[in-house]
């Protein structure tokens, strides 16, 4: 009965191994000797040898990989070359802000997508129903074609530069210097200020999160919307819904039938979108100086900060793997066809 879940969890181990190997391999391929990058131009011959030994770079490839896995499992991702801080700590400070942003973005996409998609699917074939469906198709193509960062900039131009009703795109808490803020328990400024009870700051943080979240919603809601409209239509027209209506199953139950059956493709699509948003957030974060994982990544890439690049690759891959695992688990609980049969067939 639980075999499926066990097998699914067991599959995580090779996945994580390969992912860590790829992250390791990528850094090995980086141009330039990391020792030289660490020590900078003012280095001595002995210094280079000592550092090489310390980092274990004189050892064979697989020994190095083994050490890397060992360190990573213990949560040691090395230090950033630029800030000299442990990478794991910096990720710990920045990843929550990004997860917060993309989670809000995903929630917005799912709420809008499912709401509008459901209405569109059940709309009449004439008049406003036709109009709604056509607009959704056109909007879907359009939104899919626009870069998210550009849409963010347009919002900045309209709501900050022109109308002046939303704060400048300068971080989660505009007007406060990040380093002066006490480290909150969540590392998400909006939540931290709320926990602290400073509702003035929390209000600012809330207003600052409107534009980035709306940006994600504008660009990515059509993904959920489309799948919702298509699957809901399909399910509504399905033989089993028609059949249930024809024997007088009440409306509430019909709605449940539609929801439960349309849920699976919507969950899958939303999950894939969630994983995608982590990459997409890099750009939106840049526009709004969000100070999360995305900007950290960009800085690391531009500075060839290899430990950070390695760390962020791992975080991104693990995030994706976890999201896909969640999708499979939801499928398991919603769709009986996945479960091993417990009832003899006729």
């Amino acid at each position: 009965m639980r075999k499926f879940l066990l097998r699914r969890f067991a599959f995580l181990i090779p996945q994580l191994f390969v992912v860590s190997f790829l992250a390791f391999l990528l850094i090995k391929l980086l141009p330039g000797d990391p020792v030289l990058i660490i020590l900078g131009p003012l280095r001595t011959q002995e210094g280079v040898i000592r550092e090489t030994k310390r980092l274990g770079l004189d050892k064979p490839f697989f020994v190095q990989y083994g050490r890397y896995v060992e360190r990573t499992v213990q949560g040691d991702f090395g230090n950033s070359i630029v800030t000299k801080q442990p990478v794991i700590e910096e990720l710990g400070r920045r990843v929550p802000a990004t997860l917060w942003l993309i989670t809000l973005g995903l929630v917005a996409c799912v709420v809008i997508g499912i709401g509008v998609g459901y209405v569109a699917a059940l709309a009449p074939p004439t008049g406003w129903g036709t109009w709604l469906n056509k607009s959704i198709i056109g909007y879907g193509f359009l939104a899919g074609a626009l870069p998210d960062f550009w849409v963010g900039l347009i919002l900045v131009f309209i709501f900050f530069a022109t109308l002046g009703i939303l704060p400048a795109p300068i971080g989660q808490l505009p007007g406060y210097i990040p380093s002066l803020l006490p480290d909150g328990p969540t590392n998400i400024d909006l939540l931290d200020t709320l926990i602290k009870g400073d509702f003035g700051q929390a209000g600012t943080a809330f207003r600052a999160s409107i534009m980035p979240v709306v940006t994600l919603a504008i660009v990515y809601a059509p993904v959920v919307l489309k799948i919702t409209a298509v699957t809901t239509t399909e399910v509504f027209n399905s033989q089993y819904v028609t059949g249930a209506r024809a024997v007088g199953v009440r409306r509430r139950t019909i709605t449940r039938y539609i929801m439960r059956n349309a849920l699976l493709p919507i969950v899958t699509t939303s999950g894939v979108l969630y994983a995608f948003l982590l990459g997409g957030a890099v750009l939106v974060e840049t526009v709004f100086s969000w100070g999360g994982f995305g900007q950290y990544t960009v800085d690391a890439v531009n500075a060839l900060d290899f430990n950070v690049i390695q760390g962020m690759m791992l975080v991104a891959a693990v995030f994706t793997i976890v999201v896909y695992l969640l999708i499979d688990i939801i499928h398991y609980f919603v769709d009986p066809r996945i479960r091993v049969s417990t009832v003899g067939s006729s």
């Binding site: 790829l22 990544t297 690391a300 890439v301 690759m313 991104a316």
Partner: peptide, 14 residues
């Protein structure tokens, strides 16, 4: 399994 844009960034770094 890697987010596309992150991999692209990392590869460009390489």
């Amino acid at each position: 399994a890697f987010p596309v844009f992150i991999v692209a960034l990392a590869l460009v770094a390489v």
